[in-house]
Design a protein around this nucleic acid. Structure first.
Lengths: 202, 202
DNA sequence: GTATAATCGGAACTGGAGTTCCGGTTCCGA
DNA sequence: TCGGAACCGGAACTCCAGTTCCGATTATAC
């Protein structure tokens, strides 16, 4: 009898691991452009593998979306960690919002996950600890008096959801930089305001 | 020879006209609940007619969506006209934003049209003159010093697009009242701010 | 009342996207 | 080097939602 009771190799084969990465990368690229309804066949082709291979790693398209969600939220978490290094709390928080906004405007998959896949979003954000990171960033900014006290970390996703949506002047899936920057300017001023408009408790 | 050169009746048959209304009303109801991918068969059943009838009035699902868009934007236009009656310009504008927000949160079709159907939105808004109405409402508020001068009517749809999107605390298609009211409080404070954050020109 | 053209209903058709399946291929331990 | 388990590729299948089509029905003019 071999040392291990179950003879299955603990780690998957090298090519399988590599292919998994190729698929995720292909999904990231295509879904950034076409949104979550990029087709599995196209993703497979982009990755340079067959559809069968995609389905071995991700039994369902939904599973692939979950994996992608985690990947994208990890990116946002990185932004948070970098912002936490900065000395100025208010500026750090606002800069994070801008970087996040830019990512969301550039990547359809991210905004569609936030819009249409609450569970995937929840799971992905949970896994990378995004909410806590944002909360820390925000609390600092509040203690520095940079933003209103009654705002909370949970408000951020809703504020950001408005990005990545088309507007009359900007047909098509991607909004122009000036458009979303105007939006962000208003939101950030709203966050700086000392709560003039009464905000209902969460 | 009959008085009219072409013997075709100028108006369609009474039952046809009635059925057209029934279909639009059914689409309004179902798409408010299920979004734009409510199914044609279900809409027909809800209207109490056959699918064939739906397709005679609206050769394509897209055509039905266009008709619905116009219907929904007409509602927003009504809100505008009512707001224009009010004496206080700032309050009127803010009240309009809240009524619009509530409609958007209640009606998935409206937010999905604004998100995913730029042309239908453009056409519908154009037809009911919504942009001009909003502009008038906004200009008044600006002249009264209630909101920042650098905001424009075209910014409104983008601000409103964020509504009707799910957030971690609110899975499912509809957001809770407290959630969207928090969002609106921040946006309105951002609109009241005298432009502290630099806003790029449109 | 009757002719007739417009309208209706819904079964059947169609195309597209997710998923399955299995013969062929490749990696890895012995 | 060699055996075999794991993995790969992609044609084929399934399912579903939009659309078509035509015999039955009904409103309207005379």
């Amino acid at each position: 009898m071999t040392p291990s009771a179950d003879t299955l190799p603990r780690t998957q084969r090298a090519d399988a691991r590599r292919n998994r990465e190729l698929v995720i990368e292909a999904a990231r690229k295509l879904m950034a452009k076409d949104g979550l309804d990029a087709q599995m066949d196209d993703i497979a082709r982009e990755a340079g593998v067959g559809v069968g291979t995609v389905y071995r790693h991700f039994p369902t398209k939904e599973d692939l979306i979950y994996a992608l969600a985690e990947h994208r939220f990890e990116r946002l978490a990185q932004f948070c960690r970098e912002a936490l290094e900065e000395p100025d709390p208010g500026g750090a928080f606002e800069r994070y919002l801008y970087r996040g906004a830019e990512l969301q405007v550039t990547d359809r998959s991210l905004s569609e996950i936030m819009r249409d896949r609450p569970e995937a979003m929840q799971a992905g954000a949970q896994k990378v600890g995004l909410l806590e990171l944002v909360r820390e960033l925000m609390t600092r900014a509040q203690e520095a008096g940079a933003i209103r006290k009654d705002a909370e970390a949970e408000d951020v996703p809703m504020l950001m959801c408005g990005l990545g949506t088309s507007t009359p002047g900007n047909p098509g899936p991607f909004v122009s930089p000036t458009t979303w920057r105007r939006f962000m300017a208003i939101v950030i001023d709203g966050l700086r305001a000392p709560g003039a408009a009464e905000m209902p408790p969460r």
